[in-house]
Computed example of a mutant assay.
Amino acid sequence: MGSAILAHFLLKEKLQKMGMLGCLLCIVGSTVIVLHAPGERSISSVEEIWKLATQPAFLFYTASAVATALVLILYCAPRYGQTNILVYIGICSVIGSLTVMSIKAIGIAIKLTLEGTNQAKYFQTWIFAMVAVTCIIIQLNYLNMGGGDKFVMQ
């Protein structure tokens, strides 16, 4: 949403009705999520985040996300990617969910380190960092593939 607004003002791009609707839906959705989110418990180390991330439910979610991304990347993108932007959007979205999780862990690690408890000494911090970098690279690659002029919404 922020990119669409900045492109409108800085690059003089015209924000279409669908773009405006998308921005409005992002604002409404974010507001609803924040208002109804449960309270967050305090986390004291990256090891604690690791314990949460290695629970069976989260591992199942991660495996499902990776499997879905692989199907989209290996099967759908070569066949349908050139004509259907939803393939690239799907890849970015699925991988983006994993990016958010790993960035959250890195953010907590940075916060705790600045508060005086060094989190860089835990291998888990570096695993979260590698996952984040990998996911971001994949997202940028498919975002660039889907951002060409070949997909124009009327």
Rank of each mutant, 00 (worst) to 15 (best):
V46T: 11
G147E: 09
E40T: 08
A109D: 01
L6M: 06
G90H: 02
Y88H: 08
Q55K: 11
E40N: 08
A37F: 15
L72F: 10
V94L: 01
A129W: 00
L86C: 07
V131H: 06
M130N: 14
Q82Y: 13
L21R: 15
I110Y: 14
Y80Q: 03
Y80M: 07
M1H: 11
C135F: 03
A132P: 03
K51R: 13
Y122L: 02
V34D: 14
E40W: 05
I127R: 07
I103A: 04
G90C: 00
L112S: 06
T134M: 11
R41P: 00
V46H: 00
L24K: 13
V133H: 05
S42K: 07
F60S: 11
I43V: 13
A120M: 10
V32S: 08
E48Q: 10
S64I: 02
G29T: 14
K111A: 08
A53P: 00
I103K: 00
A57V: 15
L86E: 05
L98K: 01
I43K: 00
C92S: 09
T134G: 06
Q154W: 09
A7W: 05
T134W: 07
I27A: 10
L52M: 06
A77E: 13
G29E: 13
G2I: 11
H36V: 06
L6K: 05
N144I: 14
A132E: 07
S30M: 13
K150R: 15
I89H: 02
N118I: 12
N118D: 15
L6N: 04
A77T: 14
I49D: 05
A132V: 08
N118C: 14
Q139F: 07
V87I: 14
M18T: 06
K12M: 10
A7L: 10
L59A: 04
K14L: 14
I95P: 01
A65I: 07
L11K: 04
L15P: 05
A77I: 10
S42R: 07
Q124R: 03
L70H: 09
S64A: 12
I110E: 11
G107C: 06
K14M: 13
W126K: 07
L35C: 14
A105I: 02
I89S: 05
Q139H: 07
T125Y: 13
T125F: 12
K51E: 12
A63G: 07
N144E: 12
